[in-house]
């Protein structure tokens, strides 16, 4: 059984039917990319896994437990971290506080600091700065770091390269690559080469459904299916 299973999920924003029967699975230790054009339901799929946008139909199973309809904080405490699209820093909290808040009440804050500053040494010089004052790349590192602490086994990563300068994207890609070696990752990424580089498998979404899936090995943007669904 896969660590994460999404089965025939239908999710809505109000009356807008966004996910129309999405099914996918992610095995333990795997990195899986969700690709597709803007507005096809990639972010909503991540939100539905976390129950931030609870599915009206279908089920989400994590580590053998049906989490559909459960409160988001319970899903998060099962070991699911979220690195959201626009980073969503607590801008008035310091970097240390952003890490501390992600550590469970019974967790080891010292160990969390070690994990974060070990993975991102650049952040250590900015521990006492408010996160809102950091550069975009540094904020992305804090966002990834926040998802890592607390013993999270799975990371839902949404558009980590969005809005970043190319050299920063490279640093973030290196960081994600290191994370992917240790954790299970479900990645939403518009940067096609980056997504294919990081992921083991992919799911291609269009109009709220999965239209293709498979191994990322050898897949290029020129492939017929990819071209049809990713071209503007």
């Amino acid at each position: 059984m896969s660590l994460l299973e999404v089965d025939d999920v239908h999710s809505y924003y109000g009356e807008s039917h966004v996910l129309r029967g999405v099914s996918l699975s992610v095995d333990r230790g795997e990195t899986v990319a969700l690709i597709g054009r803007n507005g096809v339901g990639k972010t909503t799929t991540l939100r539905s896994v976390l129950q931030l946008t609870p599915p009206r139909r279908g089920t989400v199973t994590y580590d053998g437990t049906d989490v559909t309809g459960r409160p988001t904080h319970e899903v998060a405490r099962m070991g699911v971290g979220w690195v959201p699209e626009d980073r969503r820093m607590f801008s008035h909290l310091t970097v240390d506080e952003n890490v501390r808040i992600a550590t469970p009440p019974d967790g080891d804050v010292g160990a969390a600091f070690e994990t974060v500053y070990g993975a991102f040494p650049e952040l250590e010089d900015h521990r006492d700065r408010e996160a809102g004052d950091l550069s975009g790349g540094q904020q992305q590192m804090v966002a990834i770091a926040r998802g890592l602490v607390g013993g999270n086994e799975t990371l839902l990563v949404d558009e980590p390269s969005e809005g970043l300068a190319p050299q920063i994207v490279e640093a973030v890609a290196d960081a994600l690559s290191a994370v992917a070696a240790e954790a299970t990752v479900l990645l939403v990424e518009q940067n096609f080469p980056l997504a294919m580089d990081l992921a083991d498998r992919f799911y291609l979404l269009d109009q709220g459904t999965v239209v293709a899936s498979g191994s990322t090995e050898g897949v290029t943007r020129e492939d017929e299916t990819i071209r049809r669904y990713l071209s503007a």
């Binding site: 988001t72 904080h73 998060a76 979220w82 969503r88 607590f90 808040i101 992600a102 469970p104």
Partner: peptide
């Protein structure tokens, strides 16, 4: 205090706080 941290974070972004495992309710 931890609850103080929750309040300051939740004041900025309650949804993100939940996604970090905080029982915002």
């Amino acid at each position: 205090t931890r609850y103080g941290l929750y309040i300051r974070a939740g004041s900025e972004d309650a949804e993100m706080a939940q996604a970090l495992g905080i029982d915002i309710r």
